[in-house]
Design a protein around this nucleic acid. Structure first.
Lengths: 222, 222
DNA sequence: TTCCAATAAAGTGTCGACAATTTTAAAATA
DNA sequence: TATTTTAAAATTGTCGACACTTTATTGGAA
């Protein structure tokens, strides 16, 4: 019989989630200094617990810490965003390759269903921003899970995901290439259905590269 | 004028380094439970500082923590090692691609020099294990640095590196394919010298894949 | 006034203690 | 004896306090 670990949520856990959300959504501004006494007071918690939470945020590259100087929310930059896309291209490319090998037929079927829903929503909303914001993430998320590589899953869904979300939030990155992205998702799913790892990786990498170029264009306009 | 941040080493920093080394080298056995009071006493430090250090070890996947149950040193497994190699293939492949674009001529020259030294040592030692253990790491390390992608560098040199070193240590993974690996390094450096990103990535991925297969063979013998 | 030194205020690093939970040991019941 | 209950011990989570470092403020000299 499985011994279900009692999912106790520690104070530090909750604090970490709260702060992560606040940082990602810009509530605590990018680049701002974090005052331990003040934050601890605001959340009605001791500095010790807060420091543990900050440690985790640091591990996820959401804050940077210097000894005796304290922690600052990471400063968003064009250069770092490009770096993140390069890492994503490598990791998600591998994820797609592995997903083509390891996803179950059932999972592939469900992904197909999800994509159909996206198609409908695009028609209805006439290519609105919904897709980029949630649908795109859902799709990628499932493929990463389908890789069945826990290390890869952790890297993408825990570490990179939130940083990327932070950029999306604060740089206002909804794009109008939703229908193009939809097509790309479609081709990619075909490759996975055909159990073609090589092609799946290729298409995923192209997909991410084109979305990087899209971001590059957008940022150059500002 | 540059304001050199005073490189103050905090207690937690030192503790973290010490524990990391102890875990990587098997001094604290894989899978064993970590007792906070005991470890704190042994190192003459408070539990608070120790807990921060453990938190960092957790972020590097060297220990696993469960609320109210404490931390355990990660359990090494064949499956996880394969996962790590897959992640490495993706990330270092991208690193090689970027290195072919971004390494300076000077850096490439120095890398060439390093490789020449390795060649000599292999002749002298008649293909001894030195290469795999240190030389191989040096070479890969420099290429990762050459990518100039800080995110990538952090992921590989901070996170993955120590886990991999732990496996090398505890699984006794010196192989006798040092001369083959040397040749592969040579081809790879040629691709980088020629500023051929595509080829550099391809060769790096093959190199890592073949070293993964080598590990697979070795482990199947046990 | 402007610059520098001395001092005060605030912030971070580290510690020991208490509260809550888990594990171990002992006692009691079947 | 085996199994469940109860109590004790140990361990983790959380807190408040103190020491040391950095930053802000004040006061004086050029």
């Amino acid at each position: 019989m499985e011994k279900n670990d009692p999912i106790t949520i520690t104070l530090t856990d909750r604090l970490f989630d709260t702060l992560q959300r606040a940082i990602v959504e810009g509530e605590i501004p990018s680049g701002s200094k974090i005052s331990e006494p003040e934050l601890a007071r605001q959340h009605g918690v001791s500095r010790g617990s807060l420091r543990e939470a900050i440690g985790r945020l640091e591990a996820r590259k959401l804050v940077e810490r210097k000894p005796n100087l304290g922690a600052r929310v990471v400063t968003l930059s064009y250069e770092q965003l490009i770096e993140i896309y390069q890492v994503r291209e490598a990791l998600e490319g591998m994820a797609a390759r592995l997903a083509a090998q390891n996803m179950s037929d059932k999972e592939i079927g469900e992904l197909q269903l999800l994509l159909d829903q996206h198609g409908q929503q695009i028609e209805e909303l006439h290519g609105q921003a919904y897709f980029q914001k949630q649908g795109d993430l859902d799709f990628h998320y499932r493929i990463v899970q389908g890789s069945k590589n826990h290390h890869l899953i952790g890297l993408l869904c825990n570490d990179l995901y939130h940083l990327l979300r932070m950029y999306r939030f604060q740089f206002g990155m909804r794009s109008k290439r939703s229908s193009q992205a939809f097509d790309e998702h479609h081709y990619l799913l075909n490759a996975i259905s055909s159990r073609d790892p090589e092609m799946a990786e290729l298409l995923m990498r192209q997909h991410i590269r084109s979305s990087r170029r899209n971001v590059e264009r957008m940022l150059l306009e500002n």
